[in-house]
Amino acid sequence: MTYITDIFLIAISAALINNFVLYYFVGICPFIGVSRNVDIAFGMGFAVTFVMTIAGSISWAITTLVLVPGAPFTRFIAGFFLDPGQAVQIDLTTLSYIVYIFAIASSVQFVEMYIRKFFPSLYKSFGVFLPLITTNCAILFACLTIMSHVAGVENPADVWGLSKALALSFFGGVGFTIAIVIMAGIREELDFCDVPECLQGAAITLIVAGILAMAFMGFTGVDSGLRVALTGG
C-alpha cells in the first residue's frame, strides 16, 4: 500500500507541486518558443512526454544495470578480467552524463521515426521542433533526478525501481504539458491585448509565467500533507 502511495506522491509532485517548468526552470526554451497556440503546444507537450518516458526508462536501466558500483552487467563483463571483489567496486557513474545525452538523442530519433510513420500530419506541423527536443533541459533533468535516486543512495531500500522512475518521467512530462498548454491559452488571449512594444514577445511571456508560477506555488505542501495523511508519518 505504501508503495502505491509513494508512486502517487511522486506523480503529483512531478506534475503539479514541483512542476518542471514553473519550479525547476527546465524546458523554458520551448515553453517560451512554442506556446503560441494551444494545438501546437499540446502536440509539443505530448512529444516531450513520450520522449521523456522513453529516455527516463533507458537512463534508469543503464544506470542500474551498468553504471552504479556493483551493477550486474558490469560485474559480468569485469568478471572475466578481475576478481569478484574488485569487479563490484567499478564505478562508472562519471560516464552518466555522456550516456544520458546519447540515450536522449536516440529516443528523439526513435520518436521522430515513429511519428513520421504513423502521424504524418503531426510530423509536418512540428517541423524543426522535434530534433530540438534533444536540447530540452527537461528531459535531461528527469534523467538526472532518476540518477540521484539510484546512484549514491545511502539506504538501499530508498533506491528507485523502474516504476518510480517511470512515474517521475511520465508525470514530469504531463506537468510540462499542463504548463505549456495553459501558457498557450493565455498567449492566444494576449494577442488581442495592447501589449507595450518593448514587452512584446518573450518579455510578456516571462511576466505571465511569473504569475503562473505564483499560482502553482499554492500547491506547496500538498504532497507533504498527503504523505502524512496517507502513511501517518
Binding site: P196, C198, A202, I204, L206, I207, A209, G210, I211
Partner: peptide, 25 residues
C-alpha cells in the same frame, strides 16, 4: 522573499528584458 522564489525569477527577467528591448528600440 518572492524575488528569490521562482516567480521572482520570471518577473525580474521579463522586466529587465523589456527594458533592454526598450533601449534597443
Amino acid at each position: 522573499v518572492i524575488m528569490i522564489l521562482p516567480p521572482g525569477a520570471f518577473f525580474t527577467f521579463g522586466l529587465l528584458l523589456g527594458s533592454v528591448n526598450y533601449m534597443v528600440n
